[in-house]
Amino acid sequence: MGRLIVGFLVAGLVLSNCIGTDIVEDFVEARVTVANKIEVMLVNDQYQLEGLYFDNTGARQSADFNWNSSDPAVLQIDESGLVTALMPGTSTVTASVNEAMESFAVEVLDPAVVDEDSVRVIQAMEGDRTAELRTVSSYQLEGTAILRNQDGLRLILTEDFETSEALPGLYIYLTNNTASVANAQELGEVTAASGQQEYEIPQGIRINDFSHVLFYCKPFRVAVGEGEFTP
């Protein structure tokens, strides 16, 4: 019986020593976005665009961007992303890396016929980005998240935010891949299960750096809810 007990203890210790591996299916389509889009320019203005490229895990990578203007007579763009407004009209700017691309329209105005100061204000404005939240689990999670750049970049969960109080360790992230927090920006633990709340975003992060907000249960290492920012 003594040998049996010793063998039992040894087997138990060996059995309990193994830490296994979980494979996370974290493939996402590569994504391109322009960090500093502009809606309006005045003739003869120049503006430097910055492209962001995220690989198949959502990690930001350096890349060679292809820049294109749909109407080069209105808006010229060089290989570095420097745009020059040439004449009144509208042109669509496209940034691409391989198959990934993003396009947006730029309106060029004649400074002789518009209020230049108003245009400058519009150019300086950085609109909110909004995400409708949804659960991706059996736990309740709903509401709206807003990315707002006003006295610093913040994430706001609006009054209609609500999640389950049964969840332990619920954290909020900005990410380009909702299957993983590997390249995500943690904003902190969700402070209340319902109602409006705000989270400061560290300096250096811009409003277009991330495509999604992710609610992640740290102890279980699993996504609970998410929302995709628009625009």
Binding site: I19, T21, D26, T57, V181, R221
Partner: peptide, 24 residues
Amino acid sequence: FFVRALQNEQVSGTTGEVILPGDA
């Protein structure tokens, strides 16, 4: 008299890199 709690490491199915190390 001996309790062991552990959590598996998480590895990216895309890159094979460790996303979060295991713990015990």
